[in-house]
């Protein structure tokens, strides 16, 4: 069954890529190759980027920023959500502030980030943090608030203190929500890091795309976009893997 499923997946991927390249090729023939290069031109540049090693410093810069910003958001977002989710006194005062900040797109923070931190790593960390914070905060907060009444009765019945309640009931119960937040936020963070680097950095894949645009190297722009897509996919797969390992009681095994 697994072999057949794997074969089908490869088959579907192959067919969809063929359709994509065919449509792309037709459009490239119709439109100027400066605006839209042909797939083979892009593939050649894509391979050159890796063979020359030129891309690796930019990949390292972007992934490093993404991971640092994401980890800070993970700690701050989940920490704030647990405090507010468990505190009936604080929640009514703080939650409206988050509700006001949440709809502001991370890109809208870029000018402020440049003013506060200048061009460079710190601006990028800040933008990634903003992008990754809210999906984690919202999911964990919802998870904490979703602890069923029967578990609250269990806590009361066995007189668990706040720490025991958190360690044995609230945290494990909310862990799937936390990981759902991580899946969303790692994607948001990756999109935000590229946007931030286009405007406010001197390295990274976003910066590399911007430089290639200025030099009208369209095939390089598209090749880097492909790299961004592949890395985004891999980051998502890493979180999925962690989720499957951590939520051993769920439907994953």
């Amino acid at each position: 069954m697994t072999v057949i499923r794997g074969f089908n997946r490869v088959k579907y991927l192959g067919v969809s890529l063929l359709i994509l390249f065919f449509v792309w090729y037709i459009l490239a023939v119709i439109i100027s190759s400066v605006i839209l290069p042909k797939p083979l031109q892009v593939l050649k540049v894509f391979l050159d980027l890796f063979l020359s090693g030129q891309i690796f410093t930019h990949i390292y810069a972007s992934v490093k920023r993404n991971i640092i910003g994401f980890l800070v958001a993970l700690v701050m977002g989940s920490g704030t959500a647990y405090v507010l989710g468990l505190s009936k006194k604080l929640e009514p005062y703080i939650t409206p502030i988050f509700e006001l900040l949440r709809p502001i797109p991370p890109i809208a923070w870029i000018p402020l980030a440049i003013l506060w931190f200048g061009i460079g790593d710190n601006s990028s960390y800040f933008i990634i943090f903003v992008a990754a914070f809210f999906p984690i905060f919202t999911n964990v907060y919802f998870g904490v608030r979703s602890v069923p009444n029967k578990f609250i009765r269990l806590r009361q019945g066995y007189k668990l203190n706040g720490f025991q309640n958190f360690v044995h009931i609230v945290f494990p119960f909310s862990l799937p929500y936390l990981l759902t937040g991580c899946k969303t936020s790692i994607g948001f963070a990756w999109m935000a890091v590229i946007a931030a680097e286009i405007i406010a950095a001197h390295s990274g894949l976003g910066y590399f795309i911007e430089i290639s645009r200025v030099l009208v190297q369209t095939e390089k722009v598209i090749a880097v976009m492909v790299v961004i897509g592949i890395i985004g996919y891999l980051l998502h797969q890493i979180v999925l893997y962690v989720e499957k390992r951590l939520i051993y009681w769920g439907e994953y095994d």
């Binding site: 019945g157 668990l160 494990p172 009681w249 769920g250």
Partner: peptide, 24 residues
């Protein structure tokens, strides 16, 4: 109390679920 629903913690083994009674 023993409820109609056993109210076991899905992430704990039977032994650890029993130990919940003794946490305090």
């Amino acid at each position: 109390v023993v409820f109609q629903d056993p109210v076991l913690l899905d992430w704990k083994s039977s032994y650890d679920n029993i130990m919940v009674g003794l946490l305090s």
